[in-house]
């Protein structure tokens, strides 16, 4: 992973990225780049390599190719699953692992729509699915990141809370000029709450504006048989 020396409009450039795990090709020659402040949804069927792409972007798996983040970019990441059910840890303690300032913690909790006073001393294990996801978003933003990486941010949340969380996430990223990379299965959510979509099925099979993802032809591209030919220009 390289942090770019010369700042330009692109916050992330990925070139010819390939990931192989246990002799299995998970990601095959993916190239794209994105500018600061946009929100990009990563879509694709199960096993398409979406989470692995995130793991590569975070340098958690070995990869071939080049990943360049903009200079001094701070990344906030929220994984799909956390194992907190068996750990007696309060919201305050959890957030303090990233930022010790109580003021910042409360501001982050308030900005994700939680009553910071009421929730800060609760145990993580007692939170509802929706509260948990919001606390996780607060965790991701508590040290003012430039980029947020979300893997299925509303897993385990009911439909109403899901819309509310995405709405809040969109407001938050626009207000703080945060670049958002989001993995989602839900094309409706992708269309409503992201600017652009990148469809992955080992390779890039679609890249375009999110408003087009519900188009039947696009859906066929995303969920049909992958044809890994060289994708044209993929940048915003």
């Amino acid at each position: 992973m390289v942090f770019m020396e010369t700042p330009d409009d692109y916050i992330l450039k990925v070139s010819n990225l390939s990931v192989e795990i246990s002799n299995q090709q998970i990601i095959d020659n993916v190239t794209f780049k994105i500018k600061r402040g946009i929100s990009l949804a990563i879509v694709g069927p199960n096993g398409a390599g979406k989470t692995t792409l995130f793991r590569a972007l975070l340098n958690l798996v070995p990869y071939k190719g080049k990943i360049e983040w903009g200079a001094k970019v701070k990344i906030g990441y929220v994984p799909q699953i956390l194992s907190v059910r068996d750990v007696p840890i309060s919201v305050r303690e959890f957030l303090s692992y990233k930022n010790e300032s109580v003021q910042d913690m409360k501001a982050a909790l308030a900005s994700v729509g939680l009553d910071s006073e009421a929730i800060i001393d609760k145990s993580l294990a007692t939170l509802s699915g929706g509260e948990m996801r919001r606390v996780l978003i607060a965790w991701a933003i508590v040290d003012n990141p430039d980029v947020l990486l979300f893997d299925e941010p509303t897993t385990g949340v009911d439909l109403d809370s899901e819309e509310a969380i995405y709405g809040m996430l969109k407001k938050l990223t626009v207000k703080n000029k945060i670049t958002l990379l989001l993995i989602s299965h839900d094309l409706h959510i992708v269309r409503e709450y992201s600017d652009y979509a990148l469809a992955l099925n080992k390779c890039v099979v679609f890249f375009g504006e999110s408003k087009d993802v519900m188009d039947p032809a696009t859906q066929k591209l995303i969920y049909g048989e992958p044809i890994c030919k060289e994708f044209g220009e993929a940048y915003v």
């Binding site: 975070l58 990344i75 990441y77 750990v87 959890f94 692992y97």
Partner: peptide
């Protein structure tokens, strides 16, 4: 302590930090 607990909650979060 904190590092181990964070690793318990999420290995990915810990490694990404």
């Amino acid at each position: 302590y904190r590092k181990i607990v964070l690793g318990l909650i999420s290995e990915e979060l810990a490694i990404s930090k």
